[in-house]
């Protein structure tokens, strides 16, 4: 009798325990572990020991528009004899993590190389490359160069002396031809991330050669008839009409300092606050821009 009571007592305990387990099961729904979203700390993994080097070319491009010309948003057919741009403090970086120009980030360089001199180039011509022109080249540790910065500075000598960017060319519309020279003096620093284009750039292996490219989008200045009128590029571009209106005897030769007096306040603000800062890219990749003067 005592054994039977003990057995029944334990059976009751088991049933009560199973009931408790059911409650426990209901309360403890299986949960997937959330992925660890912590961002890894930057490391110097991509830096090299300095012994394995290659040659890094830094090039500049005005794309096809600089070489072949194009039609502005207001119908002027533009061709360019020269587009001078002056570069200073051109620096290529291996950034880890990769630099995001649209965030409030700064480049976290594990390696960097800088061109030594202020250099003026002409975006319209290079006998070896129709699409870009060499600024300079530098011996650099092998690795992945995924960020580029430069100052668009005023030239100290040469055909663009005193200006950071100079356009010389011809505009034609409805039988009217205007020879134009537009001289820009504002200086900006462009800080850009990885090149985005048809090919990847900046991947430098030892005893090899790679290149990076500073790219200038001329449609931001003149607009592009190939795009819709309400395309944001055209909405934010100056066009050529404001310059054509200043021409005398088919010639306009003007600087941005003079344009401050000659353009409307709205047009001048567009030129200096929106157009010139938007000129610099890395392929299709964006840049952070800060004005120097």
């Amino acid at each position: 009798m005592g054994q039977k009571l003990n057995a029944r007592l334990w059976a009751m305990l088991l049933l009560v325990a199973s009931g408790g387990f059911l409650v426990g099961c209901g309360a403890e729904t299986p949960e997937a572990e959330a992925p660890d979203t912590a961002i890894e700390e930057p490391t110097a993994e991509t830096a090299t020991d300095g012994e394995e080097e290659g040659i890094l070319e830094i090039r500049a491009s005005g794309e096809d528009r600089a070489v072949e010309g194009f039609t502005s948003k207001d119908g002027w057919e533009l061709s360019f004899d020269h587009i001078y741009v002056t570069f200073d403090e051109v620096t290529a970086f291996q950034s880890d993590p990769p630099f995001d120009a649209q965030a409030d980030d700064s480049i976290q360089a594990v390696q960097e190389v800088r061109l030594p001199e202020l250099t003026t180039v002409d975006l319209t011509a290079d006998p070896d490359d129709e699409d870009s022109v060499l600024i300079d080249e530098v011996a650099a540790p092998a690795g992945r160069y995924n960020a580029l910065s430069w100052k668009m500075a005023q030239a100290t000598d040469g055909p663009a002396e005193g200006y950071s960017m100079v356009f010389q060319g011809t505009a034609t519309r409805d039988g009217e031809t205007i020879d134009f020279t537009l001289k820009m003096s504002p200086e900006f620093t462009y800080t850009c991330g990885d090149f985005i284009g048809d090919e990847r750039k900046g991947i430098l292996e030892a005893d090899s050669m790679a290149d990076l490219q500073a790219t200038f989008h001329l449609d931001h200045l003149f607009g592009d008839a190939g795009k819709a009128d309400d395309d944001s590029t055209n909405l934010m571009a100056l066009g050529f009409d404001p310059l054509a209106n200043l021409a005398e005897d088919g010639v306009v030769d003007v600087s941005t300092d003079e344009l401050e007096e000659l353009l409307s306040e709205e047009e001048y603000a567009m030129l200096t606050d929106m157009v010139i800062p938007e000129l610099g890219h890395v392929g299709e990749g964006h840049c952070q821009v800060s004005e120097l003067s």
Partner: peptide, 23 residues
């Protein structure tokens, strides 16, 4: 960023780049 644990983390959720100012 794919980490050792297999977790993936967005390094820069806002992408960069454009051709028109309309990024």
């Amino acid at each position: 960023e794919v980490e050792e644990t297999g977790a993936a983390t967005a390094e820069n959720p806002a992408a960069e780049g454009d051709d028109s100012g309309s990024s």
